[in-house]
């Protein structure tokens, strides 16, 4: 071997992949954070429902708490279930 790789230090950036650009509840971009947070990233995560809709976690939790009867997805009115695959 003429040249062998001893160490490799790589760099990657991560982004959310959602089916939309903006959160359907607060209308803020997924790249940003919900209105209550200051910084995007790990502290303001996204969550997906089994209906495949995606929101800021803080937004959907607030929404679900405000619903007395049925826990529904605000987009498609199906019952909301967190998608923990």
């Amino acid at each position: 071997m003429k040249v062998t790789i001893k160490n490799w230090t790589s760099v990657a950036i991560w982004k959310w992949v959602a089916n939309d650009d903006n959160c359907g509840i607060c209308r803020m971009p997924f790249d940003g954070c919900c209105p209550d947070c200051k910084l995007p990233g790990d502290d303001c995560p996204l969550v997906w429902g089994q209906c495949s809709h995606c929101f800021h976690m803080h937004c959907i939790v607030k929404w679900l708490q405000s619903q007395q009867v049925n826990q529904q997805c605000p987009m498609c009115r199906q019952e909301w279930k967190f998608n923990n695959k």
């Binding site: 062998t4 790789i5 001893k6 950036i13 982004k15 959310w16 959602a18």
Partner: peptide, 18 residues
């Protein structure tokens, strides 16, 4: 879940043995 990685190869570096 729900994240996508983009590799920034221009910032990576390696140690090679010649």
């Amino acid at each position: 879940n729900g994240r996508k990685l983009t590799w920034l190869h221009h910032l990576c570096q390696a140690e090679l043995r010649l």
